[in-house]
């Protein structure tokens, strides 16, 4: 038996199920029963009960695209702060003749290659150095809302603000636009999405905000 409805908000210690359900992220079992260990929304996917966290530090998953800041460059490894639990690393391939052209303080966009007890490894393939822009930090749990269904929100943001967006699953976002007015408008839109991620009709609100802010700028 399940003691919740899909997408209920649950808190640590809350009983979720008492038989045969598998324990997924954010849950634990005791005496054959399944409980929540993390605050978040509960879902059942393929008979596994898991919790979508609503807060806390970013927990890297393989395949995530993240924005990070290069915090150290050592002979065999580049350390990247991805605002997560541990610093991530990039390992340049051995016998590489052209060293990675990245330096401390650079902002990079990369994919999580692997996650393990030794830390998070970022992939060197597709690694981009973000040339310019404004870095914004938001709650990683709200990044899916910024991206939107099949990327609809971020596509709209690009179109309405005229800015490029690098959206990291880890909650770091860079916006870069043709002029300060459009960048500031994009930052305001991100802040609105973070603040009102739960409010229906958000897309409309964001469009209105951007049009109002952009109306004031000279094209």
């Amino acid at each position: 038996m399940l003691y919740f409805n899909e997408n209920d908000l649950v808190i640590p210690g809350q009983l979720l199920a008492d038989n045969g359900r598998r324990s997924g992220y954010g849950t634990y079992t005791r005496d054959g029963k399944l409980y929540a260990s993390t605050t978040g929304l509960v879902r059942v996917v393929n008979d596994v009960v898991r919790i979508i966290p609503l807060s806390g530090r970013y927990k890297p998953q393989r395949g995530d695209r993240v924005v990070g800041i290069v915090s150290d460059v050592k002979p065999n490894v580049v350390e990247v702060d991805i605002s997560g639990e541990l610093t991530a690393v990039i390992k340049p391939p051995e016998r590489e003749t052209t060293p990675l052209k990245i330096d401390i303080g650079d902002c990079v966009y990369a994919e999580v290659k692997s996650v393990g007890i030794r830390g998070t490894m970022l992939s060197i393939e597709g690694l981009q150095k973000i040339p310019s822009g404004i870095l914004v930090k938001m709650n990683p749990a709200k990044i899916p809302r910024l991206i939107g269904r099949k990327g609809s929100m971020v596509q709209m943001l690009r179109k309405e603000s005229g800015c490029d967006f690098w959206v990291g699953r880890n909650g770091l976002v860079v916006v870069s636009g043709p002029d300060p007015g459009s960048e500031f408008a994009a930052v305001s839109a991100i802040n609105l999405i973070e603040r009102e991620a739960h409010v229906p009709g958000l897309t409309e609100k964001v469009i209105n905000l951007l049009r109002r802010l952009r109306g004031g700028t000279v094209e």
């Binding site: 310019s132 404004i134 870095l135």
Partner: peptide, 26 residues
């Protein structure tokens, strides 16, 4: 929310450049 990051002993280059670029425009 915040555009500022924790003080980390090194500046984030794109933010540094952005601050300079914006200041030039007041």
């Amino acid at each position: 929310m915040s555009v500022g990051m924790e003080k980390r002993g090194y500046a984030i280059k794109i933010m540094k450049n952005k601050v300079y670029e914006l200041l030039k425009m007041g």
